[in-house]
Design a binder for these strands. Structure first.
Lengths: 335, 335
DNA sequence: TGGGTATAGTTAATCGTTCAGATAACCCTC
DNA sequence: GAGGGTTATCTGAACGATTAACTATACCCA
């Protein structure tokens, strides 16, 4: 078995309490004793058992992660890498609670309790049937990514979706476009709602009237992008520029445009969202909004840590700026 | 606080031992009592505290994951989704031990012990300075993905890299290619060694001599693919077909070919490896070997579970078949 | 009636920590 | 040298489960 605190205590000739105090930064320990204990700890490679530690009510240093979309989301690794930086410097481990759906009678929240999770990060877009009430009411500090929930000890972080689309529209208007479509993602998702608002206010700023038929309903997938674009192309007066809710849907839209014998950006300008790898790799390379998911990941853990440490802290609401990456899929409006 | 076993015992009018027995499937409990306890458990939404449970030496139901390459690897989410299926059905949670590099004096292995991790999955390619000796000697059941380590209680799972490249070569030879290059990845990685062998045996099968100058050294990146391809193009007698160690390096190679004013597949046929998203999205779409990372992920957990449950089990060594996806980047040899 | 044998349930030790409260050791002052 | 005040260290009771060892009861049979 691994060495425990008793082994250390024996080797150092002190009681376990003293070892514990040294390890937990209490000042009521003699400098020499402290020195000696630390020496033994290093020699014996002692690492306190976290189960025992969290059992007595000490911190578990565990953060749970919950994904509404499953693991296959393209941003997941980026978010995770951002999280990793903060996890390391703050000393948390990240636990993926997989049992969740196994037994319906046990909720995710109970699973969190049973694992003594100190806080939870939730990532993904809102799905109809999904409710986070139980989680929020349980009082477990929670940080949502891309979901605008702010209540109790739950706050959120997100890209500045509103500004991103507004900026894209502004850019297209500078290129002399007037007929600009918005290819929408999942309607009830927070990100999409914000983007739609950005679209409206971008148009309003330039005094271009909002047209219902220029806004497609859909989701963030490529297939939907293809279908939605076909509908726009079938309009009597099709748009000359389209802002898409994701790079994947922009790829779908691009295929639809090319299949219709038109070209990007000569006939139609296209702007994506996300700046995933494919954006720079398709031809023409996609003009898109880059989301800083690394920062979002890192900050989500930092904010959660603050929420964990301060029970009274009002829930955070943090918006991270985005960047418009101009590539080859946008150009001046014809005529 | 969350309900504990005492609350359940009190409500059911039995001792905690009886509750525990019901929950752990002991048969020495009367059917009625069992029924009543389970009823209360459900009512009170009792979920046993895993810290307490693992402290008494019971199973922690925790599997650790370690990545040699950092979190940003393109396959990571696929592996993870595969893992998820098995984790759910076997009841494990997955913990990402982030502290690891924070304090050098504490190793990953100690961190595993302190978290009472039952087994570890290691993913990534071998890096020079990296040693897994401590992990293997610690006796923690370990499953390596893409690293051929088999010793003690550590086994591995990997794609059939050898067969994959051999098959690719065979396919190119059927297309009448004779001058076939291998654009190599990180030299000491297991996957790459196997692929190189597959390359040699594929050529040998067709009695084509192995040429040193047709094998580039490199890594799995796009940049390296670009550079390596340029070197091949500079040869007096450049290859007519190139098998690449990854899709990213194939993308780099394709750029090099196109920048040289040549085209794929008319002048040079190109085969990738991995079948990541970009493979089907670049033009021409990339012929490539698809790795079944979902299955690898799922099996890695299943195998690890067997290793955990049976102390005497010889370490597994599992090879998962791949698939050649024929797209547009390969064609018949000229002339 | 007595004794053997299942069966059902209880008691209490245990895991490795933390920490409140007890104790010890020391110094200082009157 | 008694009393008081620090400072350093120790003792032992938690925390929430599991489980070996035990007890109580019921049942059966000679």
């Amino acid at each position: 078995m691994a060495t425990n605190i008793h082994d250390v205590a024996k080797a150092a000739g002190v009681s376990v309490a003293t070892v514990s105090k040294v390890l937990n930064g209490y000042t009521t320990v003699n400098a020499n004793t402290k020195e000696r204990v630390l020496q033994i700890v290093k020699e014996l490679q002692f690492y306190p058992n976290s189960a025992a530690r969290s059992l007595v009510g000490r911190r578990s240093m565990t953060i749970g992660i919950f994904l509404t979309t499953g693991l296959a989301h393209p941003f997941f690794t980026q978010i995770l890498s951002g999280m990793e930086q903060a996890l390391k410097s703050l000393g948390y481990d990240l636990i993926y609670l997989a049992q969740m759906s196994r037994a319906k009678e046990y909720s995710f929240v109970h699973h969190c309790h049973s694992r003594n999770v100190e806080g939870v990060v939730v990532f993904g877009f809102q799905q109809e049937e999904m409710s986070f009430d139980e989680l929020i009411e349980s009082g477990i500090p929670t940080l949502f990514i891309d979901l605008d929930i702010k209540k109790g000890r739950a706050g959120y972080i997100s890209s500045d979706n509103h500004e991103a689309v507004e900026r894209a529209i502004r850019y297209l208007i500078d290129l002399n476009h007037h007929r600009i479509s918005f290819l929408s993602g999942n309607k009830d998702s927070y990100a999409n709602r914000q983007r739609l608002e950005g679209y409206r206010s971008g148009l309003a700023e330039a005094e271009i009237p909002y047209r219902e038929d220029y806004v497609s309903e859909g989701d963030f997938t490529r297939e939907m992008g293809y279908q939605a674009m076909n509908k726009l192309l079938a309009l009597a007066e099709p748009p000359t520029a389209v802002v898409c809710c994701s790079d994947m849907s922009a790829v779908g839209a691009m295929e639809a445009i090319q299949d219709a014998g038109l070209s990007v950006p000569e006939d139609i300008s296209l702007i994506g969202f996300d700046d995933i790898e494919i954006a720079s790799n398709i031809r023409p390379a996609l003009t898109t909004t880059r989301q800083d998911m690394i920062t979002i990941g890192r900050r989500s853990i930092e904010l959660l840590d603050e929420l964990i440490k301060d029970k009274e802290l009002p829930p955070p609401e943090v918006i991270i700026p985005t960047e418009l990456i101009i590539r080859k899929s946008t150009g001046p409006a014809k005529g």
